[in-house]
């Protein structure tokens, strides 16, 4: 436990001693600001009764942040250590491979949660100035945040795997980005097949992160989605662990 916490602290430290943490935070703030502006414009243009968070998802800024920020947050986890050689000092200290993988993942997750905190500011803003207090009630806020965390877990675990596969930061970021975009684009399959019932529709709706997020934003916490994210994260973390261990049998 001590080594795990030490490593998580070091992960967070490395982001805020260097520029990445601040740049990502600033970038996300900028995009959230843009989304607030466009939301206001939309709301002033026409009335609708969609929950605020669902409208926010429809502005696509959420997905932009998710797709762009996660590769940057995770690319350093393993690739930088391998590149600079500190991977060797790390793995020759009395630490377990699993501990290292979990610590790197947790570090990235803490950052992911941090970058989404400003979203609550946006919610409060609308709640304060909007006439209808139900646009952003506590329940939908909580379920949205749960969705963000779950989706973050999936994306961070994919990013960790990408970073463990290579010693080059750019390659790590690109693999993570490609994986992330693929998962995102897969969601669009549901829109094509939603009319015809069958196993395909069933399958696509299980893996559609857009549909999942929309549910969470409406305040619906579906256990199927919960299971999907937790198990997918576990799979990617397991693959990361095996990649880290692979130096033993190569």
């Amino acid at each position: 436990m001590q080594t795990y916490l030490t490593l998580v602290r070091r992960e967070l430290g490395s982001h805020f001693v260097s520029w990445t943490g601040y740049v990502v935070l600033a970038g996300v703030l900028f995009l959230l600001g843009l989304s607030t502006a466009s939301l206001l414009q939309e709301m002033n243009a026409q009335e609708n009764d969609m929950p605020l968070m669902e409208q926010f998802l429809d502005t696509y800024y959420f997905w932009l942040v998710l797709l762009l920020a996660t590769p940057i947050l995770t690319m350093r986890t393993f690739a930088l250590e391998k590149f600079s050689g500190t991977f060797e000092t790390l793995m020759t200290a009395p630490v377990g491979d699993l501990e290292v993988v979990l610590a790197k993942f947790s570090g990235a997750m803490v950052l992911h949660v941090l970058i989404w905190v400003p979203l609550f500011g946006q919610m409060l803003l609308f709640r304060h100035y909007g006439n209808d207090p139900t646009v952003a009630d506590t329940g939908t806020a909580a379920s949205t945040f749960l969705g963000i965390v779950l989706l973050g877990m999936l994306y961070m675990s994919m990013g960790c795997l990408a970073s463990a596969l290579t010693r080059n930061l750019n390659t790590a970021a690109m693999i993570a980005f490609a994986l992330g975009v693929s998962v995102f684009v897969l969601s669009y399959l549901t829109f094509g097949t939603s009319l015809q019932p069958g196993w395909r529709t069933e399958l696509y709706s299980h893996i559609s992160i857009i549909e999942h997020m929309r549910d969470f934003a409406r305040g619906v916490v579906d256990t199927r989605a919960l299971v999907f994210y937790l198990s997918a994260t576990a799979v990617f973390l397991f693959l990361t662990l095996k990649t880290v261990e692979s130096r033993r049998w190569r």
Binding site: V17, G85, T89
Partner: peptide, 15 residues
């Protein structure tokens, strides 16, 4: 029980 300094002495240089 081992203190190991690898080749090229890798360190977390930002610390």
């Amino acid at each position: 029980r081992i203190g190991y300094m690898p080749e090229n002495n890798p360190l977390h240089k930002e610390m």
